[in-house]
């Protein structure tokens, strides 16, 4: 399941759905990304997320296909929110079910690392009343590179 939406999600419900459609799985790994109150030393009061609708799901689907080819997993679910998000809000969810935990952990990290560097989303933060577009983080590029060695 891949979804881009403005609405919040319920981690408990998502985990149950993933569990129920994965009877052969022995492990589920979930990742949730949040809006934090400080970024690069600046206090943040709100986040706006823009995306390229026609391309976003295509890229996420492609990342999940590559992840499924690389790791032995049963299902990968991805939800990414867009629009205005308050502090502490959930931004992104990646849930992976697999027979064994190693593949589930690795696959979840792989999907997040590629999502951060390939999926067409852009964050704009409210910092002290100023609206600031975020720059790409070099550590995200490094995180992706480790899967390409």
């Amino acid at each position: 399941m891949i979804k881009v939406c403005t609405e919040d999600f319920d981690l408990g419900l998502l985990t149950n759905e993933l569990r129920q459609k994965s009877p052969q799985s022995g492990a589920i790994v979930n990742f949730v990304g949040l809006v934090r109150d400080i970024n690069h030393g600046q206090s943040v009061s709100k986040l706006f997320l823009e995306h390229y609708p026609a391309m976003t799901e295509k890229v996420l689907t492609d990342i999940c296909s590559r992840a499924k080819a690389r790791f032995s997993v049963d299902h990968i679910d991805v939800i990414h929110r867009v629009g205005e998000l308050d502090l502490n809000s959930q931004i992104v969810y990646v849930g992976v079910s697999a027979m064994h935990r190693g593949d589930a952990f690795n696959c979840c990290e792989y999907v997040m690392d590629y999502l951060k560097s390939e999926a067409p989303f852009w964050k704009k933060e409210s910092q002290h009343g100023q609206q600031v577009w975020l720059d790409a983080n070099p550590t995200d590029v490094a995180a992706k590179a480790r899967w390409e060695q």
Binding site: F121, W122, D135, D140
Partner: peptide, 23 residues
């Protein structure tokens, strides 16, 4: 995603954007 030498034909949709910052 395209490269500098990628050809653009009539009817194509071409998007320009900064490095992505989602997640």
């Amino acid at each position: 995603m395209a490269q500098e030498q990628t050809m653009i034909n009539d009817g194509d949709e071409v998007a320009f954007f900064p490095p992505v910052t989602g997640g």
